[in-house]
Amino acid sequence: MSAGVWDWSQGVWDWAAANWYFPQEPGRGIRPRLVEHIRLAYASIAIGLALAIPLGLACVRWKVLYPPLLTGVNVLYAVPSIALFFLLLPYTGFSDWTAILPLALYTLVILLPNVVDGLNQVPDHVRQAAVAMGFGPLRRLVRVETPVAVPVIIAGLRVASVATISMVSVASLVGLGGLGRLILSDGFRRQFDAPIVVGVVLVVLLAFATDALLVLAQRLLTPWARRDRRRGGPRRRRRAAVSPVGAPALESTAVAPPGKG
């Protein structure tokens, strides 16, 4: 039995090594799929964040905007990604945008509430102190409230990036999809499981690596946010993956529907 498992994994490994990269055909092999996957996922997340921050700021400034916007992104999230890819196809063709635009919009369902929650959880006394010291509304937002919201925003970014990395695979149905193409075209078409295993493992590893990068970014960006906020508590340097103020922000990130696709 164990010999069978061993042979099987040996086979998967051999396939991966044999198909990693073909110098004569740069478009073929596993490595270009991985690069494409990273490109599509990271571009989607970056664009999503670039949209979520101004939208979130606007929602905090004009509170009436938030309910309709949130409903909007939620409804959008309910539209199956395959449908969006095919709807975009006539306009964007087989360019990256066909995958990136829907995926970027999907991240908003996580990122927008996080930006808004992050800004809203800035303690009232901090905000008051800023006002009393003569910060104008814009300066207060940029210099005080946004930096204080960063831990919550990064917490959302971690959830959104893992979700996006997983969802990129679906775009293989329109000829994009990075590692998803290994799974779909090489795997299902040939009734051969090595490409599927390699694709899945690489997707998971990529998600892990991205998450680790974000944790690192958080530690560098917010050295002030540690879980040991309470005085007298242990002063160990622990990672503060969550908002320094508590769990409310996490709850909103945790509602992201699993298995989107």
Partner: peptide, 16 residues
């Protein structure tokens, strides 16, 4: 306000 000092109950220090 920049010419008037202000101290509040919880100090209101900027955590960052």
């Amino acid at each position: 306000r920049r010419g008037i000092g202000y101290v509040i109950q919880q100090a209101g220090l900027f955590p960052h």
